[in-house]
Design a protein around this nucleic acid. Structure first.
Lengths: 176, 176
DNA sequence: AAATTGGGACAGTCATGTTGACTTATCTGC
DNA sequence: GCAGATAAGTCAACATGACTGTCCCAATTT
């Protein structure tokens, strides 16, 4: 039951990608497994492009995640970043030290609360993040274009559904 | 522009989850970033449930991935599994040794090619994989239910679009 | 008979994460 | 104003999962 994928659809950024549609009884094991597998392969495929750049810099994915969220929310505190990434202070500490020594990330004392260290990218940090983002964007833009606008809405809805309701406000807060 | 998510929709498995729909100009940076972030948080959220079970067994995610694909394609060869996971022979070797010593995975000599080692789960391996799958399924089924059938089709289409065309046949081959 | 392929094994390294305990500075509530 | 909570940094030790490189064996292919 293999569904052939039109290879030429990659260039034509208008025609929706044809894949097996979800059946009315869409909670069967195979359909769950299809979601699990596509999520795994889609995620690793998207990430792959940035890995080459990171490796050339001697950085890893952990550094990328920090750069990404600092770019997304300039001036966020160390604690907020820990909460977003779901790692311990010690793990993040080493990553932030690396990024600080390379002058990719700067820390400022918080204005409202002077215990906080607010994180921002330096110019070179922003440049690196932009290069990494371009890699992810290329992959994501192609997928959006192939799948079509309606599919993108569904993509977002299912992914948000995977996030436990308690964690959703934090994810939504990244937007706008 | 934070969109409040109905918390009660989690119980009612019929009403589609309301999220910001993709705009006509859906290639703007914010919409790309939204996809990146939801993919990250959705993936890690789905995985999280299985981690507790794995930890109790003294196993890690690498073991889970092998168990998953052996359950999905019983009798696949070591080389096929290496190709699916995108890891080196050495990395997989240790994982398969662990799983073998715990009698969760069995190897049989290939019939067509006797150099191959074909992998299958033992009874206890299948039982463990089933428990792990149940965790992922709970998360995925809830997301499917909240988002609705149409959204699931879009979810699949975008994810398949993320996979480089050259890799897609391998992903499709897991189905049916 | 020679070359290739599938798989296993050993040694060493690196990146990323963990726990626990301790310090410093700062804020908040009484 | 002081006690306790909080934000952050730090040290040490450790586990996991990946890597590279090399060597080997058995089976298949040419």
């Amino acid at each position: 039951m293999t569904v052939p994928i039109s290879a030429t659809a990659a260039q034509a950024h208008v025609s929706p990608l044809k894949v097996t549609p979800a059946s009315p009884l869409f909670l069967r094991e195979d359909e769950i497994r299809r979601g699990i597998e596509l999520l795994y392969f889609g995620y690793t495929s998207m990430i792959r492009g940035a890995d080459a750049i990171l490796e050339a810099q001697g950085l890893g994915r952990a550094h990328h995640r920090s750069l990404y969220f600092i770019a997304r929310r300039p001036g966020l505190s160390v604690g907020e970043l820990i909460s977003l990434l779901g790692v311990t202070k010690q793990s993040l500490g080493r990553v932030l030290n690396d990024l600080g020594h390379r002058e990719l990330v700067e820390q400022r004392v918080g204005v409202a609360d002077r215990r906080q260290r607010l994180l921002t990218l330096t110019a070179s940090g922003a440049a690196l993040e932009a290069r990494l983002f371009t890699e992810l964007e290329r992959s994501m833009a192609r997928a959006y274009g192939e799948a079509g606008q309606q599919a993108v809405s569904g993509f977002w809805a299912v992914l948000m559904g995977l996030v436990p309701p308690a964690d959703r406000p934090q994810v939504e807060a990244l937007q706008g």
